[in-house]
Design a protein around this nucleic acid. Sequence first.
DNA 1: TTGTAGGCGTTATCAT
DNA 2: ATGATAACGCCTACAA
Lengths: 338, 338
Amino acid sequence: MPGRKISVSAKDVAARAGVSRAAVSRTFTPGASVSQETRSKVLEAAEALGYQVNHLARGLTSQKTGIVALIGADLATPYRSELIRVLTERLQASGRVAILINTDRSDSTVDVALQQAIRYRAEAAVVLSGMPERSISELCHRNGLRLVLINRDDAHTGSVQIRLNDAEAARVALDSFLRAGCRRLALASSQAGTPSLLDRENGFLAEAEKRGLPVLCERLGPTSYESGLALGERLLVRAERPDAVFCTTDLLACGVMDAARHRFALSIPDDLSVIGFDDIEQASWNAYELTTFRQPVEEIGAAAVDWLSDRDAADGSRIIHLTAPMSWRKSVRGGNGK
Amino acid sequence: MPGRKISVSAKDVAARAGVSRAAVSRTFTPGASVSQETRSKVLEAAEALGYQVNHLARGLTSQKTGIVALIGADLATPYRSELIRVLTERLQASGRVAILINTDRSDSTVDVALQQAIRYRAEAAVVLSGMPERSISELCHRNGLRLVLINRDDAHTGSVQIRLNDAEAARVALDSFLRAGCRRLALASSQAGTPSLLDRENGFLAEAEKRGLPVLCERLGPTSYESGLALGERLLVRAERPDAVFCTTDLLACGVMDAARHRFALSIPDDLSVIGFDDIEQASWNAYELTTFRQPVEEIGAAAVDWLSDRDAADGSRIIHLTAPMSWRKSVRGGNGK
DNA sequence: TTGTAGGCGTTATCAT
DNA sequence: ATGATAACGCCTACAA
């Protein structure tokens, strides 16, 4: 027999307490009818034996496992890890558990992660990066797996999208540069090409074009500090050196700032104004004091968990729009924009 | 009946394929004997229906859920999130899944997290911060939950501790300062008082005392950048200003460096040498170039997962010692220590 | 209030 | 190779 009994079960407790298994079950089911006496007998036996209800077996009958999968790549990134912190906290507060699926390795795409989530009968999956194939999302639907898509496109049935005002924020960034007296505009982004990155890029570019302003535009590598460094180099060697750079991400912005200061001995914001996006912790560090847009992580977490708790929302898709407020610090010439 | 059937089961597949449930089970059990014909019938039906094996039910009989709990606070911290990234990746590579339990909120201690892990019949729990009560670790043992304690004290049966050479590293730090010609030594730490922090503090202090050197010593708040900032203020206002600070954590070190530069206009390493611990990503950023000790996260992950795969190790406790190599950068006067 | 019985989706055992 | 049958640990009618 593979794996003899390894943990204590309700049966053991029932035996020790001298009651039926059902009595044990009832004792641990909120709002069931048990007499005070048996209840305490059961509790005592459970305590002595170290019994914990098996949620897996419970989920088998009740069809509610309480498991929610968090799926994404670059889990150690400041913004991503912050989101994970918030989500786990709120999920737990609502009586659920998070399973975390890392899709960094090339052999583990979002699709296989979703299949894994189904195998563990997760009630929902929160997709933090990458995009599920259309076909796989049908699979999810058929298995009762609800989808929360954070900052990605293309909702399917039984899913929510949570989106930010990326394009508008980009326009605000442009406007801030202009009011600060900057004229040689630049845009720095990665090549990731995710929906939110694209929206920020296009929002900035479109607004500049509308005003007839040229923008020096570079896209490079993954969304990382190193890319920002390289981006800074490329942008700042130009003869016509930019005096303002909108970075689609704070990580990129930190890299650009460091390139400006340490490779070109430029001063920020006097020689160069910088605006980022995300408001990662480092953006507020004294070394950066980066003006940026704050990802409303708490609101995102709340929205996701609220939607999960809303049984009626299970079919049909929804889009929730949240806004990323500007966080003024010191990387833009001329103060707080007022 | 609460919750009608929500996902497709082996029964459904069996019905559609015209075979028994057992045949379906065998098809999805590696190394079971099924004829090529039934196998393909099953596979086809499974594909059409979108069937995924239910790992929860599987774990019920096999006693192996494949679930490992990651338990900790400050999940969004650079070092912590990096560790989580590595662990999830390696756990997945070994065919397991991580459930992530956040103990930030005061009502969710390590103990309740462990109980949660037991309820989900996790095979093991990796404790990243905090310490389980003695009594609860007995509970874990009784429920077959193995414990991996990273950088904490006090192993119990059925658990591994993974420890670093914290004290030795601290001695190396002291030595480096001395060779750089620093004489006014300081130590900056948080009040967290975790085993590894304590070892670093005591290692530094003990070695200094051995050599008859006084050390200015400050401990403050949680282990964060802000604490580092405050620590820097306190240390550097002194009349006898330190010319070297050993910070027990990189996050503290970044704060101290920023305080030195931005509040006291000091230059690093000319006016002040700094050494940290962890080698978080930011330590390598141009703004810091911090000399520090690298947490061997990959090795930690590997050790943890290897131990989990070693069935013989299930009883009896072990301590695994790993070393944190020094990472020379530019925050110590006089170069690379050679 | 309590116990009995059946079912949840699997896997393991035992015949066939 | 295949199918019936009995667990696994729990929940929930249903009957007592």
